[in-house]
């Protein structure tokens, strides 16, 4: 089960996230759980795999906004960095595929970590 303590241990900025949820713990935890289930994780992974940079950027950008709102800082940080790499104006991705992949793995691993706590494994 996901708790405020879990999230704090995970490195989330609980104070900030709670403040955004008007210090309603139940609501905050619900938002975190919904974030973990957000379709943009799957979209990001698919788009990177198929080499669709625009779609990958949009998915990363969306994730950046959500994870920032619920203050899941450990996930937000790699998502934000990946978003900047994928941003169309940032130049060619050539030679950076591995970086992107590494970010994706990092993001997925962190998300899985929280999901397993949420689901009680």
């Amino acid at each position: 089960m996901l708790t405020i303590d879990n999230l704090r241990q995970f490195g989330a900025n609980v104070r900030e996230g709670m403040e955004r949820c008007m210090n309603d713990e139940t609501f905050y935890l619900e938002m975190v759980k919904m974030t973990l289930d957000d379709k943009s994780f799957g979209r990001l992974s698919d788009a990177l795999q198929s080499g669709d940079r625009q779609a990958a950027f949009e998915a990363a950008h969306a994730l950046k906004g959500i994870t920032a709102n619920v203050a899941l800082t450990p996930i937000y940080e790699p998502v934000a960095e990946l978003t900047e790499i994928l941003r169309p104006a940032a130049g060619s991705l050539e030679g950076r595929e591995e970086d992107c992949q590494a970010y994706l793995e990092r993001i997925t691993q962190l998300r899985d970590e929280l999901i397993s706590r949420r689901d009680g494994n």
Binding site: M22, M34, N69
Partner: peptide
């Protein structure tokens, strides 16, 4: 807003 988490927080505001 298409992201449901963002919708919910903003609506709550």
């Amino acid at each position: 807003e298409d992201e449901i988490v963002n919708q919910r927080i903003l609506a709550r505001y």
